[in-house]
Amino acid sequence: QVLVIRIKIPNSGAVDWTVHSGPQLLFRDVLDVIGQVLPEATTTAFEYEDEDGDRITVRSDEEMKAMLSYYYSTVMEQQVNGQLIEPLQIFPRAC
């Protein structure tokens, strides 16, 4: 299952990153890619938005798994409803 992660860049749009092994993705892998997209920032975590629009911070593989399972459940709903699949949007955080 292909996963598209949209890395939101403060004040300048976003970069889409296509991942072919989504469920095996590790927290460190995401930080590495964010580091390539935002080389001047030191990113130690990132956030995503849940169904209520609240930002949830991801700082570990466990939290990463929770984010992915949340995302895959929303994708299934979108597929069932015949909607366009939205990329998983993440917001890098420099701490």
Results as ranks from 00 to 15, higher is better:
L38R: 04
Y70T: 07
R93T: 10
V2T: 13
Q24W: 04
V4M: 15
H20L: 06
D54K: 12
I85T: 06
V2W: 04
M67T: 01
Q36S: 10
L38P: 00
I9Q: 05
L26G: 12
T44K: 06
I90Q: 06
E40K: 06
Y48V: 00
H20Q: 14
L68C: 03
Y70R: 11
G22L: 05
G22Q: 11
F46V: 00
K8E: 13
V19S: 06
R59Q: 14
N81A: 05
T57Y: 05
M64E: 00
E40V: 04
L68V: 06
F46G: 00
L68I: 10
E62M: 08
Y72L: 06
A94P: 08
E40H: 15
C95V: 14
H20N: 08
V19Q: 04
P23D: 14
I5E: 01
Y70I: 03
Y71R: 02
Q24Y: 05
K8V: 15
Q83I: 07
Q1K: 15
G35A: 12
S12I: 07
C95L: 14
D32C: 06
G35R: 09
N81C: 15
H20V: 06
V80M: 11
H20G: 14
G53D: 01
N81V: 12
E86V: 12
C95P: 12
S73G: 12
S69I: 08
S60A: 04
R59L: 04
A14Q: 09
P87E: 01
T42W: 05
M76A: 13
T74W: 10
T43D: 08
P39M: 02
E47K: 02
Y70H: 11
T42F: 13
F91V: 06
V37T: 06
I9A: 10
F27G: 00
L31I: 13
Y72M: 08
T57K: 05
H20R: 14
T42V: 12
Y71M: 01
D16I: 05
K65W: 06
I5Q: 03
D61L: 00
A41I: 15
V37I: 13
E51M: 13
E51N: 12
E62S: 11
K65H: 09
I9D: 05
L26M: 04
T57V: 13
L25R: 03
V19T: 11
L68Q: 02
G82W: 04
N81M: 13
G22I: 04
E86Q: 12
S21A: 10
Q24I: 06
E51S: 13
A45W: 06
T74D: 06
F91D: 01
S12E: 15
R59S: 10
M64C: 15
E63I: 00
D61K: 02
Q24M: 06
I56E: 03
N81Q: 09
R28I: 08
Q24F: 02
F46R: 02
L84T: 13
T44M: 12
T43F: 08
G35I: 07
D50L: 15
M76Q: 12
Q79V: 07
D32H: 09
A41H: 15
A45K: 02
V4E: 08
E77H: 12
S21W: 05
G53N: 04
R59I: 02
E77Q: 10
N81L: 11
V15R: 05
V58H: 03
V15N: 01
I5T: 01
R93D: 07
A66P: 14
A94V: 15
D52R: 13
L31G: 04
T57C: 14
P92V: 04
S73Q: 10
Y71H: 07
E86R: 09
A66W: 04
V58T: 03
V2F: 05
E47P: 01
Q1D: 10
K65I: 05
S60K: 05
V2I: 08
A45G: 09
D52Y: 09
H20K: 15
V58A: 00
I85K: 12
P10I: 02
E62F: 08
L38K: 05
D29N: 09
Q36C: 06
D54M: 14
G53L: 03
A66T: 15
T57M: 14
K65F: 05
Q78P: 10
C95E: 14
G22A: 12
Q83E: 11
D32W: 05
T74I: 09
V75K: 13
Q83C: 08
V37W: 09
L38Y: 15
P23F: 09
Y48F: 00
G13A: 15
I85V: 15
A14L: 06
P23R: 09
V58C: 01
D50Y: 11
I56L: 08
S73K: 08
V4Y: 14
